Amino acid sequence: MGTIVNGANGGFKGKAGSIIGSSWKSINYIKGLYKKRSKPASEAQMMQQEKFKTLMRFLLPINFFLKIGFGRKNTEKLTPINAAFQFNLDQAITGIYPDYTLDYSKISISDGSLYGGGTVGVSYDAGDLSFTWSTDDSETFETFSDDMVYVLAYHPEKDEFISTPTPSTRAAGTVSFTVPEHLATGAVHTWLFLSNRSKTKVSKSVYLGEIQLI
């Protein structure tokens, strides 16, 4: 694929002979017409395709979180979900082809330089999942009471995510929500991260562990 920086004719869209012109985020591209594959995919290609499916199946439903957690990563060339995919590809996938699985403890929902939640934790009691974090704010570390806190839980057996309807704040120190009845068995994996109010800075996400639901 070629990138059109400048030229006498500028960028174009559509088909012209054997090439196709398109643009994305004000960047003009040209690429050749698709050619039907005559050779079967190699084992390396099939392995990469299987890794892609395994990881993207997890990431797609949480695009809202990824837009915040990876929204500042190489935005000129990558969407947040693609940035999250690249970030997690080498560290979160385990197993041997074709039986790949995810190591949830190594999955990152966000990555940035904002100071995180300090002492963090999660617990489950009487149907409620509760997250806690430190409430200290610091002008030195540019952390403030209105920093936003995002929590996330994933139920692998049901393949469903749950979270709060809206983010909490650093000053709150805790947030709880009721686990839906159809998910209140088995276990969930949990994460937490923060952003500033304008969502221009985020912390690294923290994996809080696997929580058994009774």
Rank of each mutant, 00 (worst) to 15 (best):
S138C: 08
S138Q: 03
E139L: 11
T135H: 02
S205K: 03
H189D: 14
K158M: 15
A126F: 12
P180L: 13
Y124W: 10
L213A: 05
F12P: 04
F193P: 03
F141Q: 14
L66T: 07
L208G: 01
S138I: 03
Y207A: 01
G116K: 03
R72Q: 15
K31Q: 13
I19W: 02
L89Y: 10
F52N: 05
N74V: 08
K77N: 15
L55D: 00
L129H: 08
S176P: 04
L55W: 05
G117R: 06
D128L: 15
F64P: 12
N196C: 12
D136C: 07
K106V: 01
G10M: 03
I107T: 10
G21N: 06
T166P: 00
L102E: 11
Y150P: 03
H155Q: 13
L194H: 08
T166N: 10
S113I: 08
L55Y: 02
Q48F: 05
R37Q: 14
F52I: 03
S130W: 01
F65P: 00
L59F: 01
V206N: 05
V179E: 05
G173V: 04
S26M: 09
I20G: 04
Q212N: 12
I4D: 01
P156R: 06
G186C: 07
E76V: 12
P98N: 10
F177Y: 15
N6Y: 09
T3R: 07
G10K: 06
S163M: 14
L59W: 03
E76H: 14
Q48E: 09
V202A: 01
K13W: 00
A83M: 11
V122N: 03
G209R: 03
F161L: 06
G14F: 09
N63G: 08
T185R: 12
